[in-house]
Design a protein around this nucleic acid. Structure first.
Lengths: 333, 333
DNA sequence: GAAGTCTAAGAAATCGATTTCGTCAAGACC
DNA sequence: GGTCTTGACGAAATCGATTTCTTAGACTTC
C-alpha cells in the first residue's frame, strides 16, 4: 500500500498537495496531472484509518437489528443499505439478538470506531444511548422507539393491530385471540392495543399470550391457546415469525388454517408457501430502512432541525392468491 | 472521549504507561491502580482508530455474501458471527447481490479499512482477490470457491445433487428436471452433475434450466418446464429459493405438490409452511460459517500451515412431517 | 508604482494510540 | 565493591492522512 508521501515524492510535490488533489481542493491543472499519474502508477489508495483519525469520523453507519434471520429485518437492512450506498456510505450490520448486553457492546464499538451514525431497533427501553448521543453522533430509532431524544421511524402499530383483528371479525370469526411479543416493547404493545380495541367486550380472559417473537414462541403460545376449555376460533399475531409458529401448531393439531382464522401483523416470509387464507398486514420494511437512512444521512450532513418521528402506515392486505402475490413481488423489484 | 494523555495526566504517569496497562504489559501494581482509577473516572475508552493506524490491523472481519435475504446466508452469517464474537472480533456483513462491482468495492473497503480478514462467497470466478491477498490479509472462501490460493469451506455438492435426485426416483418419479443456478458457479454446476449422473440416459433434452438463484428465477424456470410438450413429473432445484418459486408455479398451474415431485438442495425457509412431500437436502449453513470463521481466525493468529479446503457433507433428509420438523429445529437451538 | 488582495503550494502540527530507545535503580554474581 | 542483568517507565518517534500556518508570486486598484 503506497502512502501519500510516496506519491508526493514521485510526483515531485508535497504530501499536502496530494491530499488536496484527492479532496478536490484548489490545485493547478499541472500538478493535478502529476499527482494523478503518480498515484495511478503506485496503485495508491488512501488509508482510511489515518483519514478517520484526523477527521474524527468515517463513512460507515452502524445498523443494529434484533434478529438477522427475520426477513422483516433483512428487508429493512436492504433499504438502509441501498440508501447508504447512494451516498457512498457503507453499512455495518450488527445482530443484537434482543440482548441488551450485545447491543451495548455494539454501541461501544460504533463509538470507538467513530462510525458516522447509528440506526437501531432497540432491544429494550433501557438502551443506553447516552454515550453515543453525547458524542454528537446522530442516531435514528427504527421500528421501535426509545426514551432518548433521537429521530425515529415507526409504523402505525395500533392501526395495524386493528386492521388485522377487524379482518378476522369480518370473516366471521368471533373468539379472536392474540399472540404478542414480549411485554415492554412499545411496538408490540401498540398492536395489542389495536386488537383489544376491536375485541373489546367480546374479549375472553386468557386470550392474550406473550411470546418471544420467534417461530418457537408462536408455536408454544398457539398450543396453549388450543388447550383452553373454550379455545379461540382465530388468532392475531403481532409479528410474522410467530404466525409461522402458530400455523405449525395448527397443522400439528390437525386443524386446517382454512377453518381457523389467522392474521399476522407483518408479511409471512416466502408467502407462496402459506395458506392463502392467512390475513397479512403488510409492513413497509424496506421503506422503513430507506427512510431511516435518509434521516440519518441528513443529520450526518449537519441538518439541525428539531427531532422528527415519521410514522409509516401499514397497508392492509386481503388474503391474496399466490398468483397475485407473485405479481406484486415482481413489480416491487 | 477522553484520551490516553488525559488519563496519564490525571494518574501522574506517562501515556506509555497507560497504554501498557491496557495492553497487559509489565507495569507495577501501584501504577496500574492509579491508571485504572483515572481511566474509570474519565470513562476512558481507547480510540480504536488510532490503535488501528499504529498496529495496521483491526479486530474486524468482513463477510461478503451474495444475498442477505436468503436464509441460507443469514444462517451462515450467524455461524461466522458466533465464532467471531468468542474471540472478540466483530463482523461486518456485506451484501454483494452477486454483483462483481459491488463485490470489488467491498473488497477495497476491507483493505483500506485494514480489516483483519475476509470470508466471502464469490459472485464469480473473476473475483480479484489479488489486492487483499498481496496485502497479506487472510481470506477464506465459503460455499463457493475461487481460483485464488485461499482456504475454503464447501459442501459436497455433487453428492447433494445425487441425493436429491435419487430421492425422487425412489419415490417413483421418472421425468426428473433440474432448475440450476447461473452457469459458471461451481457449487451449482456440481449439483447439476449430481443430477445428471442419476438421471443419465433417462434424461430428456431440455430438462435442465438455468435461473438466477432467486424465487422469481425458480418460478420462471418451472413455468417453462410445465409448458414443454412432455413436461417433467418432478424437479430438482439447486438451491432453496428457486424451490419456493417452483412451488409457486406449481400451485398456480393447479398442480398439487403431492403429485409432482419436488426436491431441493437446501432447506426450504420456514419449512412448516411447505408441503411435507418436498424432499430437502439439508445444508449445514451455520456450520459452514463457524468453520470458515475458525479457519480465518487461525490464519489471523499467524497459523501458516498449507492451504486447506474443508468439505462438509450435506445431510439427506426424508420429507418430514411438520411435527418432526419442529422438534428437530427445537433441539438444534 | 506602492499598497492591498488572492492563490497555489510547501512546512509543520495534529489526530490518539503503540512501540522503540534510553535511563535509572535494584538485585545478582564474582 | 564493581560489573552485569533485569525491570519499570518516561521521552520521543511512528502510523498516514488532513489541516493550519506561511510564504512567494500574480493581480488589482488608485
Amino acid at each position: 500500500m503506497a502512502t501519500i508521501y510516496e506519491v508526493a515524492a514521485l510526483a515531485g510535490v508535497s504530501p499536502a498537495t496530494v491530499s488536496r488533489v484527492f479532496n478536490g481542493l484548489a490545485v493547478s491543472e499541472e500538478k493535478q496531472r502529476l499527482v494523478r499519474d503518480a498515484a495511478a502508477r503506485l496503485a495508491f489508495t488512501p488509508n482510511k484509518t489515518a483519514r478517520r483519525l484526523r477527521k474524527r469520523s468515517s463513512e460507515i453507519i452502524a445498523l443494529l437489528i434484533p434478529d438477522i434471520e427475520n426477513p422483516f429485518y433483512t428487508a429493512l437492512a436492504r433499504g438502509v443499505e441501498d440508501r447508504a450506498q447512494e451516498s457512498g456510505f457503507s453499512v455495518v450490520l450488527c445482530n443484537t439478538d434482543d440482548d441488551p448486553g450485545k447491543e451495548l457492546r455494539y454501541l461501544q464499538i460504533a463509538a470507538s470506531e467513530q462510525m458516522a451514525g447509528v440506526i437501531l431497533s432497540p432491544a429494550s427501553d433501557e438502551v443506553d444511548l447516552g454515550a453515543i448521543v453525547s458524542l454528537g453522533r446522530p442516531v435514528v430509532a427504527v421500528d421501535r422507539t426509545t426514551p432518548y431524544p433521537v429521530d425515529a421511524v415507526k409504523i402505525d402499530n395500533r392501526s395495524a393491530g386493528i386492521a388485522a383483528t377487524k379482518a378476522l371479525f369480518d370473516a366471521g370469526y368471533r373468539r379472536v385471540a392474540c399472540i404478542a411479543g414480549p411485554a415492554g416493547i412499545e411496538a408490540t404493545e401498540d398492536r395489542v392495543h389495536g386488537w383489544r380495541q376491536v375485541v373489546a367486550s367480546r374479549m375472553r380472559e386468557g386470550y392474550l399470550r406473550h411470546a418471544n417473537f420467534r417461530v418457537d414462541g408462536g408455536h408454544a403460545a398457539m398450543t396453549h391457546l388450543l388447550a383452553l376449555d373454550t379455545p379461540p376460533d382465530a388468532v392475531v399475531t403481532t409479528n410474522n415469525l410467530m404466525a409461522v409458529g402458530a400455523l405449525q401448531a395448527l397443522v400439528e393439531a390437525g386443524i386446517s388454517p382454512e377453518t381457523f382464522g389467522v392474521a399476522a401483523v407483518g408479511e409471512l416470509p416466502f408467502m407462496a408457501l402459506a395458506p392463502a387464507s392467512v390475513v397479512q398486514v403488510r409492513l413497509p420494511a424496506r421503506h422503513l430502512g430507506t427512510t431511516a437512512a435518509t434521516m440519518l444521512l441528513e443529520r450526518i450532513a449537519g441538518d439541525a432541525q428539531p427531532l422528527r418521528t415519521v410514522v409509516l402506515r401499514a397497508e392492509v392486505a386481503p388474503p391474496a392468491s399466490p398468483r397475485e402475490e407473485w405479481a406484486r413481488k415482481e413489480s416491487a423489484l
